[in-house]
């Protein structure tokens, strides 16, 4: 694709991947949620255009697709940061001070819960129990789990990601 810029090549590749997913699930029983999961894995979120494509591909009303996307907290219509910070708000974490940790993240990152930093590097969410209650309070950054967190550790944890040199 000599005449296509990198961004467009990515977009085309993602679209192709989505087409494959839709084709794979079409005709199976209850395909919508698995397709949305895979679409979100491809795009990182579920913008309107992707929902429209899925609705057309699976022969479903767009309202049904949007209804499902907006119902489940696992689906997002907003892009997330490169590093997704999730502060667990399960009961075990809550009684051990998760709220103070979440507060610290909002001030350290300068964003509200649910938002993403302007450079797209970090997004912050309060999440449901991640099931690592033995280590409460727990914070997840992408797939890394940080247990026994305290507000004091927040800056150090964030530094680990800020130090990462942007690769090519």
């Amino acid at each position: 694709m000599a005449n296509v810029c990198n961004g467009c090549a990515d977009a085309l590749a993602m679209e192709k991947a989505l087409d494959e997913v839709i084709a794979r699930y079409k005709g199976t029983k209850g395909p919508l949620i698995p397709v949305l999961h895979e679409a979100q894995a491809i795009y990182g979120y579920l913008p309107f255009e992707v929902q429209l494509k899925i609705a057309e591909g699976l022969d479903l009303p767009l309202a049904d697709v949007y209804g499902v996307v907006s119902f489940y907290t696992g689906f997002t219509t907003k892009p997330k940061g490169k590093y997704r910070v999730s502060v667990c708000m399960g009961t075990a974490c809550y009684v051990k001070g998760a709220e103070a940790i979440l507060d610290k993240f909002t001030t350290s990152l300068g964003i509200n819960v649910g938002d993403c930093t302007e450079d797209g590097k970090f997004s912050l969410d309060a999440c449901r129990c991640v099931g690592a209650c033995g280590l409460a309070p727990v914070v997840m950054i992408n797939d890394d789990v940080y247990g026994n967190m305290t507000p004091d550790k927040v800056e150090d944890v964030l530094k680990k990601y800020e130090d990462v040199q942007e690769g090519i």
């Binding site: 209850g30 395909p31 698995p34 499902v68 696992g74 449901r128």
Partner: peptide
């Protein structure tokens, strides 16, 4: 295997089945 998508109510039996069917749980 069917994946949930972050809805506590889907632990309720009828909601869980509605969700497997691909609808709002």
């Amino acid at each position: 295997v069917r994946l949930g998508a972050g809805a506590f109510v889907c632990g309720e039996e009828t909601a869980l089945m509605t969700s497997i069917e691909g609808h709002r749980g």
